[in-house]
Amino acid sequence: MKIAGQLIEYNSHEFKVLFDGLFPAMSLLATRILRDEDRGRDIAQEAFVKLWERDSEDFASENALRAYLYVLIKNACLSEIRKEKNFKRTSIEDGLFVQEQEFLNEVLREETYRLLRDAIKDLSPQGQRVVTLALRGYTNQDISEELEVSINTVKTLKKRAYKSLREKLGSQFVVLLLTELIRFF
């Protein structure tokens, strides 16, 4: 397969890096749609096998590959639901509980989480810990005790980390994440 003109062999380090980066998101998406973690992982694994079998694919970018995998996941999940519910070939609107809008919301949510995880990884190790604990609902005092640093150090680390996240993700995006998506962690 090619991504942005670069040949990726399926037994290469590059493919392993791609797989390790994309599999958790694909597995989580399938799990949310099917509401079953084991089946979700199986569906994600099958999507990568299908990708492997179609080794002549040429993707313009990693985002194009990600979109391709999302469609594979969605279709496989719908097939599973049809089998489970004994549906004939019908449209999503005709009775499946997974609707197109719900799927798109799950994709958007997963991409948002991925962007946040990637941005947090770019923070200093202490900044990562402070933000992760804050998103889990820890107070500054709790974080201070957990990391065995002063509360002023926590405030400084948090301020620097949030500034970095705002620069990387945009201030509105960070506000949304910090207020609406705390349950992610």
Rank of each mutant, 00 (worst) to 15 (best):
E9R: 07
A25G: 10
E110Y: 10
N63Y: 10
M1N: 12
L135G: 06
T179K: 12
V130Y: 03
D36S: 04
T179V: 06
E106S: 09
Q45S: 14
T156S: 11
Y68M: 13
E37C: 10
E93A: 00
Q101M: 12
F184R: 11
S171N: 05
I33K: 08
L104T: 09
R66H: 12
D38L: 11
A64V: 12
E111T: 10
V17N: 02
A25K: 11
V130W: 02
A25C: 05
K85Y: 07
K85R: 04
S27M: 00
I143Q: 00
N11I: 05
Y68F: 15
A60Q: 09
L115K: 04
T153L: 13
L181V: 11
E111N: 15
Y70L: 04
R129V: 02
L157T: 03
S91V: 10
A60T: 11
F23N: 06
L28P: 04
E110I: 06
A30F: 04
D122E: 15
V154I: 13
R66Y: 02
Q6C: 01
L116F: 14
Q141I: 15
Y113H: 09
A134I: 05
K163S: 09
F97G: 13
L18C: 11
S91C: 14
R109V: 04
R54I: 03
E146F: 13
I182M: 14
I43F: 04
N105Q: 15
R39F: 14
S27V: 02
L72Q: 02
K16T: 01
A67V: 06
S56V: 09
N86I: 02
